[in-house]
Design a protein around this nucleic acid. Structure first.
Lengths: 170, 170
DNA sequence: ACAAACTTTCAAATTATTCTGAAAATTCAA
DNA sequence: TTGAATTTTCAGAATAATTTGAAAGTTTGT
């Protein structure tokens, strides 16, 4: 397979993959494109390679910067901005986990805390089922919270080395 | 907070939560509703409580059954079908992980295997950057694959007990 | 201060997804 | 076998998300 074709396919697949995870297709495609580009790209390059408008490119690049997956690069002597993606995939994963935890898991746990304080007789089956469900979800959520927190703080070697061994031997 | 209100809020939030994870709002709401319902519900109940059409209810219930998160229940003496959700949240998590791994991670790893065989001179910076990126993603993906596989097979006590200790002390 | 180069914004258009509701199909008791 | 109860299907409607492109805004060299 030729490089151009492989790149094409990777960008397309990464885009499709993203849509299953609540990430907009173009954003994922820009990220993919930057991941496999040795040099920083300008907005023009991105627009051209993905066939998207200036506004679309701008908006999604900013979103990627907001997620800290992409950063602006100033190239001396050039007027315009360039963009580059973090190439260390473990950093990328940790960054995504960190952001999604903050944006989604934390608020959810807060809500569950509220909901577990529903008033009512616990001998009422309706009430019991509700509080049981909420408390179970809360427990699992809190466990996920701790696990993800550890993952976020873990460095690559620790994760690839120790965790793997731990999982394998248990 | 009253039960009815709390239920309401839980169903709504679970629905919103789902949309961030590529799950359609109604499907997540039906799941939430069944999670907090002590008894199996009929299609009518679901339609009524969520204010949705028969077609919508039917489609999303079937999707939930397809994911093995909900199952049909036959109540003796009743003509129509009832539905109930798995209440053990760890089972639910494992089931979701199992399905998404099968539907998304496995195909992605297969594709990455293909793409890593791109032809070209490795001293070409373009080629090197591409294969490096693909191989890095592949490695991380394979690690995730192993970890998730272990999680799928793990029983609740093992996960809540050992893993937590392991993470805490490392 | 000027103006060319570049970036950002956002209303409107496009595209994708979800939902409805009525008709068709199926099931089942009698 | 019949027909009432129930489920399924799916074309079109409604809604939501994404994208465009041109105008407004900003930056920078002279």
């Amino acid at each position: 397979m030729k490089l151009a074709e492989a790149k094409q396919q990777f960008v397309a697949s990464w885009g499709a993959f993203g849509t299953h995870w609540g990430i907009n297709r173009t954003m994922a495609q820009i990220h993919a494109l930057l991941l496999v580009s040795p040099n920083p790209l300008g907005a023009e390059d991105i627009m051209e390679q993905l066939n998207i408008s200036r506004g679309n490119a701008n908006m999604n690049i900013r979103e990627l910067i907001d997620w800290a997956l992409v950063e602006r690069v100033i190239i001396p002597g050039e007027r315009k901005e360039f963009f580059t993606a973090e190439k260390d995939i473990w950093k990328v994963v940790r960054q995504i986990v960190r952001e999604r935890k903050k944006r989604e898991l934390d608020p959810m746990l807060k809500l569950l805390g509220h909901l577990s304080e529903v008033e009512g007789d616990k001998r009422d089956k309706e009430v019991k089922t509700f509080t049981d469900a909420i408390n179970n979800i809360k427990r699992v959520g809190e466990q996920a919270d701790r696990t993800l927190e550890t993952l976020i703080k873990a460095d690559e070697n620790w994760f690839l080395g120790s965790l793997m061994k731990i999982f394998k031997t248990s």
